[in-house]
Simulated scan of single mutants.
Amino acid sequence: MQVGINLLCLAGFITEKHLPRIRQLKELGYDGVEVPVLTGDPAHYEWLGGQLDAIGLRRTSTSVTPSPDANPLSSDPEIRRRGIAHLDWIMECALALRSECVGGPFHAPIGHFTGSGPTADEIRHGADAHRRMAEQASANGIYLALEHLNRFETHFLNTMDQAKAYVDAVGHDAFTIMYDTFHANIEEQKQPRAIATIAGHVGVLHISENDRGIPGRGHIDFAEVFSAIRGTGYDGWVTLEAFGGGLPELAAATRVWRPLFPDYDTLFAESIDFIRRGWDAAA
């Protein structure tokens, strides 16, 4: 198991000014970071990868579909073409970063709804696009971990029943699911049952409290989450996701406009201790 942290708690675009905090993560014992790839170019992520190498941190990445005008699920061929081009950009930046995994909800625009659940055509278009992306990932020795979201953020992928069916539709070994405890807390009746449904297809485990603050301070039963995921044989990335005072890139979609932890020192230290103790206790 490797402990990571999603750097969206710092910013949507990681620059030199964030490096002191990232060095602190290494000192506290984090194995790696999950880098937001929302904007910028491959040259920037190549630079950042070099900085992370110097610090001694591994990395994964997280990306989104930013706009209905570049939606890989669309019935409009031109919009779908732009969506696939965006997926290519995600992959190019991740490779420049030397990311081990490309994660996040890069399936549908966050906060954009059609008025119904996913259609058969949307699933077909998405599976085609993500299979192509998985082939690119596999050819470069990395993998995908597509993130489900709750029903208030997307109509496309909400539950582990849907996620398992989508894994089957994509049908590629390099395609997995990023299981997120915050979203599952909303959509699943029992998280152990949900984890059993997607067993063998989890690529990243997101540890995110019910308020998206510090894990262990809310009401999610992480003991049962750790026990269930360890019971499947999972031994990959266990990545903290907590949000700060609101990210302009995501605030409108995720409704996060207030601080969800008192300070970075507390968030970083308390979270890694909670995750490592919880994981060990579930053995």
Rank of each mutant, 00 (worst) to 15 (best):
T159Y: 01
A127H: 04
H183S: 06
E209H: 04
H18A: 13
L260V: 08
L87F: 12
I5C: 05
I272Q: 08
R58V: 03
L149Q: 07
R132V: 01
P262C: 03
I229F: 12
Q136I: 15
Y264I: 12
E188H: 10
R98S: 08
A43M: 09
S99R: 04
L7E: 02
T232K: 14
A269V: 11
D265I: 06
A139I: 11
G200N: 09
P262S: 02
H112G: 03
G104S: 06
V37T: 00
Q2W: 03
R21P: 05
L250P: 12
G218T: 01
L7N: 00
D128P: 01
Y30E: 01
A252H: 13
T232P: 11
L19H: 08
L73W: 05
E249H: 10
L87H: 15
G141W: 14
L144M: 13
H172Y: 11
A54L: 12
F268K: 06
E122N: 06
T154K: 02
D273H: 12
G117C: 11
R255N: 12
D265H: 07
L25W: 12
N150R: 05
L157Q: 06
G203K: 03
L205M: 14
W279G: 08
Y234R: 11
E241F: 06
P215C: 00
G56R: 02
R132S: 13
A242L: 11
T119D: 02
S61P: 12
Y166P: 10
R132C: 01
H148W: 14
G141S: 13
L38M: 11
I55K: 05
R230F: 08
A194P: 05
L7V: 02
G278A: 04
A43G: 06
Q24D: 06
